[in-house]
């Protein structure tokens, strides 16, 4: 095993473990904090794939900005483990069935995939910011611009909702 492989297994273990902790904690504040760790370890995977820009943007946007908003809401609502309402037993049952169906579909879809052909290239430089920018502004310029319009409309929407009077 070389260093990259050791790092990969460590990061993978950390990612899966922290993702599991997110859904098993009773206290939502702990869940958010573990979700931040999950995002950071996924960023570590991006760095292993030489996609530094994606890694750092993942940290800034998801772990930095979005999770802060989550934390805001949870802290201000003061959700505690004992304040959690009793869930309906049938609802939990339905949730298990729905989740199981999703897992079944994913397993069925991925069963016959040729894994070797799907492995991301680790040696490529496509994730570096210079190459990424060039590809985005030449080959994929139309989808890129459309998504930026989408962002703009979301921002306008947020301002309209925020301005109540």
């Amino acid at each position: 095993m070389n260093v990259t492989q050791i790092l990969f297994w460590l990061l993978s273990a950390l990612t899966v473990f922290s993702a599991l902790v997110v859904i098993t904690r009773k206290n939502p504040v702990y869940s958010v904090l573990w979700l931040i760790i999950t995002f950071i370890s996924i960023s570590g995977h991006y760095i292993l794939l030489n996609a530094q820009f994606l890694a750092v943007v993942n940290v800034i946007v998801y772990a930095g900005a979005i999770m802060v908003l989550f934390l805001f809401v949870i802290m201000l609502m003061n959700l505690n483990a004992d304040a959690e309402p009793q869930k309906n037993k049938w609802l939990q049952f339905a949730g298990v069935i729905a989740g199981g169906c999703l897992a079944l579909v994913i397993i069925a879809a991925l069963k016959n995939v040729d894994a070797k052909a799907r492995i991301a290239e680790t040696g490529s430089d496509i994730g570096l910011i210079e190459n990424l920018g060039k590809v985005l502004f030449t080959q994929y310029v139309l989808p890129f611009e459309i998504s930026s319009v989408l962002f703009l409309s979301a921002m306008v929407g947020a301002v309209v909702i925020g301005k109540k009077n």
Binding site: I36, Q52, F53, V56, I60, A63, G64, A65, L71
Partner: peptide, 25 residues
């Protein structure tokens, strides 16, 4: 000397919020 130097600084700064928020809460 990473080629995303400034963005790294921003990433760390955006994580800096948590020290204040977690402590206060």
């Amino acid at each position: 000397d990473v080629n995303i130097g400034i963005l790294y600084v921003f990433g760390v700064v955006s994580m800096g919020v948590y020290g204040v928020m977690i402590g206060g809460w």
